[in-house]
Design a protein around this nucleic acid. Structure first.
Lengths: 154, 154
DNA sequence: GGATAACAGTTGTAAATGCAATTATTATGC
DNA sequence: GCATAATAATTGCATTTACAACTGTTATCC
């Protein structure tokens, strides 16, 4: 029987501890991951925002700029600038939507697809390294927990 | 017996899925949390970086600028600017270290302590809301998983 | 069907970020 | 003990970010 750590992670608690605060740990893990992954991505000439967009479009396309922004949890106006840069770099292209005159559809170019393949290659070893030590059950639990955190933030 | 999802989360996998990629979920959860928490913090006039520094100093002080930066996983030069702003706002103060002439020690002012108390008050309800639904055991598992992810990224 | 609201995208602007170079101080090797 | 390397903090500068205001298009309500 282990101690109930939930009160310790409550910011308003008397005996609050940073290392029991899930969002501190969440941000810390995410930040560190980004630092590590960024140096890998630099080698193939892309940054984290571009990589996120590539990943998102790699799974479903075309997507509107708004949809991409929402998926990536990135501000719409920031996403505009990212789309601009990526278009200039030839990674993606945009077309006005047939169905809705307000919408611009974003999709990968061949160059973008190739870059995504490169990105997968350079990030895969890192993935293996980090996942090592997680059993299938633990991995599944991790996904569920992250999903739940996200849902609770709706 | 559930399926082993680990291969699905591998970026180089044939049938890769974003929603099985832990770092996508990690970043998404962290981003959303930041968006939500930011609007709470705005009400008491601080931003996320300042809040992170307050939390860190609230647990241990004084700390060198470098230590604060490391704890927060924020670039040192960025942390310099944050320290500057917070000093100007009267939340923290800095003194040269006795022991090491290169080091500047950072600590909370009374105003900083009061602001930290405010921050805890406005963030606590959010904490409760998000934590609700997690058992003590699940909560503990969550902390362990985040800790492990972080350690694996060393 | 026309006014009004909601929505997708776009841009100006100010602030934040981080790389790279610099200074000042302390640790290390011989 | 002195030269050299390592470390902590600092700043210039170019890039990135996001708020707020704006345009154009579609949905809603009477």
């Amino acid at each position: 029987m282990t101690e109930d750590l939930r009160p310790l992670g409550n910011p308003s608690s008397e005996n609050f501890r940073l290392d029991a605060y899930p969002f501190y740990l969440l941000n810390r893990a995410a930040s560190r991951y980004n630092v590590v992954i960024e140096s890998e991505l630099r080698r193939i000439g892309i940054d984290i925002p571009a990589w996120r967009v590539l990943m998102i479009l790699g799974e479903a396309q075309p997507l509107s700029i708004g949809q991409v922004a929402k998926s990536a949890v990135i501000n719409m106006s920031t996403m505009m600038r990212i789309i601009e840069r990526m278009t200039k770099a030839g990674l993606i292209e945009t077309n006005p939507s047939e169905a809705d005159g307000r919408v611009k559809e974003v999709l990968l170019t061949d160059h973008g697809k190739a870059k995504l393949a490169d990105a997968r290659i350079v990030t895969a070893p890192l993935y293996d390294k980090i996942i090592k030590g997680f059993s299938a059950a633990e991995f599944s639990t991790m996904l569920q927990i992250l999903e739940r955190l996200h849902d609770n933030l709706e």
